[in-house]
Simulated scan of single mutants.
Amino acid sequence: MTTSIARLARRCEEFLDDDGRPLTIGYPTSLALCILDAIYATGSHPTAVGNVVDRYIAQHGTDDGAKSLRYSIAATGGPVVWAELVVCNLKPASTQPGAVLKAEVVDRATRVMADHGIDTVDDLLGAVGDDPFTCELSRSWLALPSQSSGISWMHLLMLAGSRHFEVDFRVACYVAELAETDVDLTVDYVLEQIDAAAQCLGVEAEVIERIVWQVSHRRILSAPDTSDFFAEVGPGFGDEMAAPAWGGLTETREITRAAPF
């Protein structure tokens, strides 16, 4: 086992319980919560996102679909009033002047789901198919205000339990922090490291993919204690674990698997 794999496994192990189950965030019974979390997660601290979800759950429970979320917003008096009274969060969707509230994006997202006949998590996963960036639903989601990067779309799918995984800029940078400086950082390399870490920990690769996605996108925060780690892997591995000076890293959603970043 290489040092980079040991480092990745150690970091991911923090997010596994004693039975090897992931401590990542997901809402397999509620598309409403998936939508809320996905839209509020970008540019927000995990605690703030958790507060939004918890406040919605306090009023509506844990099993709402997209339709119920839309009704909640309408019954309260619209996105602004709903943001004030239900989730208590008036954060805008971007830092651009005049940006709409994230609550408005949530409302529009529920309309997108209605337009495509989607209400539940199963409806969503069935509509996505094999390639989540070619379906009509994805194009509608990416057309929402400040959602064109695709990050919130991937958040949504991860929260819903989709098996699809995207090696984007942040995922690549996260793995690069742990890699030896002489490796060729490609999508294949990232996936190989994840597969090897999964084997090391005795879990499915999808479990490590979800952990890496949520940590690299700061939906869950990692603060591992590495004080005894270097003692385990042996001498010579206690050097700085700073990110190597990888060149040409650019954020993208469509990546050729063998292409370097």
Rank of each mutant, 00 (worst) to 15 (best):
L144I: 06
I151M: 05
D130M: 15
S138V: 09
D119Y: 09
D131E: 13
A127V: 04
I118N: 05
L156W: 06
H155C: 06
L156G: 01
G150P: 02
R170V: 07
E166C: 14
S138Q: 11
T110I: 09
V128N: 11
V112P: 05
S152D: 13
T120A: 02
V121F: 01
A143Q: 11
I151H: 00
F133N: 12
L157N: 00
E166Q: 15
T110C: 09
A143S: 14
V128F: 03
L142K: 12
T110L: 12
G129L: 01
E104N: 15
S140Q: 05
Q147R: 00
S152P: 12
T134K: 06
A172D: 01
D107Y: 11
A127P: 08
S146V: 11
L159H: 14
T120G: 02
D115L: 11
G161L: 11
S162F: 05
G129W: 01
F169P: 02
V106H: 07
S140I: 10
A143F: 09
T120I: 11
R170A: 05
A160K: 04
L159A: 00
V121N: 00
S138T: 05
P145A: 04
W141Q: 08
V171N: 09
C135S: 09
V112N: 03
F133S: 10
L156M: 11
M113Y: 13
G150M: 00
M113D: 07
G150T: 09
D168E: 11
D107M: 14
R163H: 08
H116E: 11
L142F: 02
R163W: 10
D119I: 02
E104K: 13
S152C: 12
C173E: 12
H155K: 12
G150I: 12
D130S: 13
V128D: 01
V167E: 08
T110D: 04
F169N: 07
L124D: 06
S149R: 02
S148Q: 08
W141S: 01
L124N: 08
V105H: 06
C173I: 15
G129A: 08
D131N: 14
D115P: 12
H116D: 15
L159W: 10
L144E: 11
P145E: 08
R108M: 15
V112K: 01
G129P: 07
V106Q: 01
R139S: 15
I118R: 00
V112Y: 05
S138P: 05
R111K: 09
V106E: 03
M154K: 03
T110R: 04
S140R: 03
A114D: 12
F133C: 06
W141N: 08
E104V: 14
R170I: 04
F165V: 07
V128P: 02
L156D: 04
M113Q: 02
